[in-house]
Design a protein around this nucleic acid. Structure first.
Lengths: 247, 247
DNA sequence: TCTCAACTTTGACCCAGATCAAGTGACAGA
DNA sequence: TCTGTCACTTGATCTGGGTCAAAGTTGAGA
């Protein structure tokens, strides 16, 4: 996976994915200002991008690749608390330290803005502040939705919930849009899925096998998934409302 | 519990608890504007304040009493996703519908602002927008911290975590401040605790009995708790960092 | 082509917490 | 005083998912 060169000036809209935070309503002057403070960073799979408690000098969004937000206990137990897919925003404007580790799960490219000037721009630009609040509320909704998954769903429902989220996120990035059947590659190892779902990797494996045996999903290889009937999958997730939630 | 009369004009600072969202840095003109759109509402224990999906015409904060944010599945399983204690803010500026039920756990008084004018004020007033973003980030941190509790902690650790949160929240509202020993009343039934922790009420009861037997807590009656050693409790919670998190 | 390491699957067994079932205790109302 | 209700406790039993162990798969590199 190739990072855009650091030496080439990109306009914001050159990013493969536009920043959900700032692009949509920015005028030319704002975009120029953003351009000044923008830079790209890339990380290899497995690298920790930010350690919990570290000072974070930037905000930004994922251009390509996948990262996770992970909490760790002293004895080593870990819980994934968020999943960063392309176009997702990272950063805590107004906060110094990170509250959790951010770990690259695949090779990843991020488009970053230096934090201080970004905050200054935000303070002067109500529509950016508003957009950030809306994004944070989205994250909060997703986190709370996930609390229901963690607290009350069975292992099978948890797996179905995760597959349905990934499928819908994946579909929203593709032109093909919403059909009943969906095809995608799992971006996570069994262990990462287990970390997300509060399970062990063995249980994840068993439940995926069970869903396959029952015809809810099909697998080509370990990672390539076909979902013949999204409605069926969402029933399995105990998640009838097809309104759906975003990660 | 008596609600302040609706007919008496209160200035914002008359609230027993000041709005964390808006008071601290507001000038006189802003306070006057807030005063215009402010009103009090009270609810009885057990009442649902807002149904998930309902249109919410206000934002506001809790003056006295306790409410919970609760997610429900079609088959009736429920998971509490947030706890509203006095001074906590409720509301989703820029959003129409509520994402979860808000239920009064005790009799409760809320200080509300009409939503539309509040949003207008917010759009004109960067420091209020900034404060709201910070509060939302706090909630997000708390939600993610709670995901670790739900996903990875044992029943005993869950109970200890909840007690330690309530103790610290309680202490932060009292002048007495931080000592090693703390005394407070549990504001939740065993069932509500179970809903918060992703457990059954029987397990909650058993684990509370166990913590009592082991001297980690003392009980006078069912609800009045003494914690002789907060450090010990936080060890039990698997939560060494005494930095602590807010609900 | 072979080898090794990372990832995944599957089996056997166990245990924390759920479920089902009786309790107790405190308090409000008759 | 009795009675019913609500909140809680405790016991007996069951089970979903964890733990431990072994073996299968895949792909990169020699």
């Amino acid at each position: 996976m190739n990072a855009p060169s650091h030496t080439v000036a990109h306009s914001c809209t050159d990013c493969p994915i536009r920043h959900r935070a700032v692009c949509a309503n920015c005028d030319a002057a704002e975009l120029a200002e953003l351009e000044e403070i923008k830079y790209y960073r890339s990380f290899e799979a497995g690298q920790t991008i930010i350690w919990s408690g570290d000072k974070m000098g930037f905000v930004g969004s994922v251009v390509a690749g996948i990262a996770t937000l992970t909490q760790t206990m002293e004895d080593g137990r870990t819980q994934m608390v968020g999943l960063l897919l392309p176009s997702d925003f990272v950063g805590r404007p107004g906060r110094d330290g990170a509250a959790y580790d951010v770990i690259a799960t695949t090779d990843i490219v991020m488009c970053c803005f230096r934090k201080k000037p970004f905050e200054d721009l935000m303070a002067r630009t109500p529509h950016i502040a508003h957009r950030l609040l809306q994004m944070t509320l989205d994250e909060l909704d997703a986190a709370r939705e996930w609390m229901l998954v963690l607290g009350r769903k069975t292992a099978r429902e948890k797996i179905a919930s995760l597959l349905s989220i990934i499928a819908r996120r994946d579909a929203s990035l593709k032109p093909s849009g919403n059909s009943a059947t969906m095809v995608f590659d799992l971006p996570l190892t069994r262990e990462a899925m287990a970390d997300y779902l509060g399970l062990t990797l063995e249980t994840v494996s068993r439940q995926i096998s069970a869903l396959k045996r029952d015809g809810v999903i099909q697998l080509q290889g370990k990672r390539h998934v076909t979902i013949p009937d999204m409605g069926r999958l969402m029933e399995e997730a105990g998640d009838d409302s097809d309104g759906g939630f975003l990660v």
